[in-house]
């Protein structure tokens, strides 16, 4: 019997890296022993995976402990899990969203998140963890190919558009929502990464910026007057097929009020010649503006 007791004592001692008197050892984060004593490698939720992330880089003195985010949670520890931790981040958690977000903003309020408090996401009680996953190496919303699915869980109308026949390569994983929008808020309109719609578009389409010898007024004012950047059934992300799109602004004098359709008499007559192919752009080919200074009358109509 005595030999058996000795055996058990030795085995227990061997299994411990440190004497029991020091308390449970940390597994991932500083001071996490009190938590990982229960929330260990066998936990259903992959708690330890935070170690794979930047939050788990111990050499960086700024990285948090469990209690930095979840609170001291003494009642939870004393009750051995029968009480909830002080701060929880799951979808159905009772912790108010402002409290959850304050936890993140405590360290992440600078840089691209300066305008968070003014953003629609903040004022509509969107939690950081509504989009971000912290305890995983692969935070889907930070991966270009996966991010749109996270956004589409709320922005269902955009999901419809990006699947249309004319679209930016979102479904192909080459453009992400965050290439144009800052979900954390911005100084400009529509939470865009730049201060205006046009400035955002010019990031990739700088050839449209001009100014030109001949400018097209709506082009200079707002790209989104003619284009739907999220997708369209019309080619080139246009909001309407030509000539209808142009007829939303232009007077019906000369050939400009011509009926769209098939057939017709050719030239600039109503019918196919003003409707098919590139429609009005068949002739007015430089519709975003032209820098040709040639002194001929037709120059004003973006044709050369």
């Amino acid at each position: 019997m005595r030999a058996l007791l000795v055996l058990l004592w030795v085995a227990n001692a061997l299994a411990q890296d440190k004497p029991a008197a020091d308390g449970p050892k940390d597994l991932v984060l500083r001071g996490d022993g009190a938590c990982t004593r229960c929330h260990n490698e066998g936990d259903n939720y992959p708690v330890l995976a935070i170690g794979k992330t930047k939050h788990g880089t111990m050499a960086d003195g700024r990285t948090p402990s469990c209690t930095s985010c979840h609170g001291a949670s003494e009642a939870h520890i004393k009750a051995k899990g029968n009480e909830k931790p002080d701060v929880l981040f799951s979808k159905k958690a009772a912790t108010p969203v402002q409290v959850r977000n304050a936890t993140c903003l405590n360290c992440h309020e600078s840089g691209k998140r300066i305008h968070w408090a003014m953003s629609v996401h903040a004022t509509r009680d969107i939690a950081c963890t509504s989009c971000h996953e912290v305890h995983t190496q692969h935070d889907r919303v930070r991966a270009k190919a996966d991010q749109p699915d996270v956004c589409f869980s709320c922005h269902t109308e955009i999901r419809m558009m990006v699947n249309r026949q004319s679209h930016h390569p979102v479904r192909e994983g080459k453009v992400a929502c965050s290439d144009c929008h800052n979900a954390h808020g911005s100084a400009g309109e529509k939470m865009l990464v730049k201060d205006s719609i046009n400035e955002t578009c010019y990031s990739c389409h700088m050839e449209k910026r001009g100014p030109f010898v001949r400018t097209h007024q709506p082009v200079q004012e707002n790209c989104a007057l003619c284009h739907n950047p999220h997708g369209s059934v019309q080619d080139n992300l246009l909001k309407a097929r030509g000539p209808f799109l142009c007829q939303e602004c232009h007077e019906p004098t000369s050939h400009r009020g011509g009926t769209a359709g098939l057939g017709g008499l050719g030239g600039t007559s109503p019918g196919a010649s003003i409707t098919l192919a590139r429609s009005c752009l068949n002739c007015h080919t430089n519709i975003h503006g032209t820098n040709n200074p040639r002194d001929v009358s037709n120059e004003r109509t973006f044709r050369r």
């Binding site: 699947n163 249309r164 059934v233 019309q234 009926t259 359709g261 057939g263 017709g264």
Partner: peptide
């Protein structure tokens, strides 16, 4: 994933030389 988009034009009255857009 399956999607169907339809564009309709419902025009009238038409120029006599022109057939409506399907």
């Amino acid at each position: 994933q399956w999607m169907s988009d339809t564009a309709k034009y419902d025009q009238g009255p038409l120029d006599p030389n022109v057939q409506p857009l399907p």
